[in-house]
């Protein structure tokens, strides 16, 4: 795009061929993606889970908070004395497990996506700045990364949650603010290798401002690792949230979440294994499908990338 003024006819032809190339690349993207069985099954399962959790108020068989002491700890596939049917059984307070799992997924998916957004919004700009400007800015940012990495993440998260108190937004804040490191590092690394390349040199020679250089020429080239990292980050954030909630330091026990349901069932392992087992199974499948999707995306977008 920077050499357009040489010949009046050239840009049109160049743009056309670029558009065609774009189209071809897109076609191969879809084709290659579809060839990856893992990626497709991951995506489908994820869509299913998303649909179920979004539609929970409509399709859940019972209200998720309906307690009933006449039907506590019913095993899967059982009908209570009142004639209500419970596919996955009930918990210690007589709440329908299936309904709670449906609602519980809402928190997981919300946390997963917002945490990645927060982490990316902090990490990507810092990585760009660090890689592009170098010098002392780079040193300061990379030391911050080192400090953050020196404290085991879960220990730090537990400490901060103990300080801030439990709650959905606090969880997102904590996980987002500790997740930026990965983005900063990978963006910085990519920028460092791009910075020396001819097209950046050329763009610089045309007198572009730093801002436009970064936004127009560097950022588009770091999207691939960011997308892959973000996909896997959603899975990681869901796991981290559920761990914190399991420890009683995440989301309030009043809201049904997969982590708190697993924690609930821990006390009834000898009498009602299903209370812990099913939420964990759904949680694992969801995270697994996200990882499958991330892996498939990597294979298609950039097989050389190690994440």
């Amino acid at each position: 795009m920077t050499t357009t003024s040489l010949q009046p006819g050239a840009p049109l032809a160049a743009e056309q061929s670029a558009a065609r190339q774009d189209q071809r690349r897109q076609a191969t993207f879809v084709q290659r993606f579809r060839r990856s069985r893992r990626a497709v099954s991951g995506l489908l399962f994820l869509l299913l889970i998303t649909a179920i959790t979004l539609l929970a108020p409509v399709i859940a068989p019972y209200p998720e908070r309906d307690q009933n002491l006449d039907r506590v700890q019913l095993p899967p596939f059982s009908t209570s004395s009142e004639g209500t049917y419970h596919l996955l059984g009930t918990d210690a307070l007589g709440r329908d497990l299936l309904s709670r799992i449906m609602y519980g997924g809402r928190v997981s998916l919300l946390v997963g996506i917002t945490v990645v957004a927060v982490a990316g919004l902090i990490g990507v700009p810092l990585g760009l700045i660090s890689g592009f400007f170098g010098n002392w800015i780079d040193t300061v940012i990379m030391r911050l990364v080192d400090i953050q990495l020196a404290v085991p993440f879960i220990l730090l998260a537990i400490a901060i949650m103990a300080v801030l108190g439990t709650g959905l937004w606090n969880v997102i804040l904590v996980l987002g603010c500790s997740g930026w490191v990965g983005y900063a590092r990978i963006v910085r690394g990519t920028v460092l290798s791009l910075r020396e390349q001819a097209f950046i040199e050329a763009a610089r020679c045309t007198g572009l401002s730093n801002w436009r250089l970064v936004m127009r020429h560097l950022l588009p080239n770091v999207w691939t690792p960011i997308i892959i990292l973000a996909t896997q980050g959603v899975g990681g954030a869901i796991l981290a949230e559920s761990s914190l909630t399991f420890l009683g330091l995440g989301i309030s026990p009043l809201i049904p979440t997969w982590g708190s349901m697993i924690a609930d069932g821990r006390n009834y392992l000898t009498t009602a294994w299903w209370i812990s087992a099913f939420p964990g199974l759904v949680l694992t499948s969801t995270v697994l499908s996200i990882y499958f999707l991330g892996d498939g995306l990597r294979d298609v977008l950039d097989p050389r990338l190690r994440l």
């Binding site: 761990s243 821990r266 812990s276 964990g280 694992t284 499948s285 995270v287």
Partner: peptide, 22 residues
């Protein structure tokens, strides 16, 4: 390998207790 990354360790622990201890 992917399953190992996706299983929440605390749930794995509980399930191991359920199966091998209880």
């Amino acid at each position: 390998a992917m399953l190992g990354q996706a299983v929440p360790p605390y749930w794995l622990g509980i399930m191991l207790i359920l199966l091998f201890s209880v």
